[in-house]
Amino acid sequence: MIKPENQISIPTQLPSGPRLSIPLRFRDRRRVTILLTLAVLGYITLMTLPTMIPSHFKLTEALMSFAENIKIMFLQPRLVNTTFISLLGVLGQSILLAFLTTLIGSVLAFFFALASTRRLAPTSLVLGIQSFMAVIRAIPTVLWVLIYSVVFGLGANAAVVGITFHSVAYLTKVYADSMDELSPEIIETMQAMGLKKSAIIRQAIIPNLIPSYLSWTFIRFEINFADAIAVGAAAGAGGIGYQLFMSSSFYFNFHEVGVMVYMILAFALVLEIISYRLRAVKHQ
């Protein structure tokens, strides 16, 4: 809906007198607000930046030691306190943590999504579940793990429940969105044949949903893998994240950190290849 004040009126006659440049856009209130906000933020950033730099800070020295650490990590990866096999084991732990939380999350989220898609559920239920899930999503995964570690104590239990919790909220949203994208006519057609709701879900919704279900679940698996590494250190959940934390902050052994970073990168590469294949299936 175009407001009357924003409507374009084409002048029938060009104004006489000195030639004015013709604007390409209206100076509407929204644009002015955005520009003003950016200007204020830019000013604050510029003013606070010098105060953040400590007095003994020397740029060249800092850059040199940064380069040195990067060199140790990426060019001289070497194991000192641990073996490659044991690192493979803890990498496996992180992968399994991601796998377990994605699995539980996707099953639970599927049922929540059925109850919160506009195609099947009443509006009140849709709004209720979606806003509840939005609140859960708004709090980062690592925080959920820390919150649950109050209940379960620091460790793997809190990590599993916390990551699953956030996964359910995330996947419910994307599954429900995928279901909303289905044509309402398809469900109407099934209803017109007298099908029960269970049959409509199984025979009409699921077959159409499988490609996006797979690709979203896989994206969540990638996220959960990253989270599993983070909470390994933050919540003592074990896995390669914990080793990474020990090597970098406890032993200060950046050679070992390098090995682990390469291992994580290799696995991320494998994930990327799989997700590329999945996307190809989706667009078949």
């Binding site: 109407e188 044949m193 269970s198 499988i210």
Partner: peptide, 25 residues
């Protein structure tokens, strides 16, 4: 309004699901 990822015969069989049980569906 067919279920495009399914085969023709699967789509045709949907026609008799209305009179069948939840389990069959």
């Amino acid at each position: 309004n067919l279920i495009e990822p399914l085969t023709a015969i699967e789509n045709v069989l949907h026609g008799c699901l209305g009179t069948k049980s939840n389990l069959a569906g």
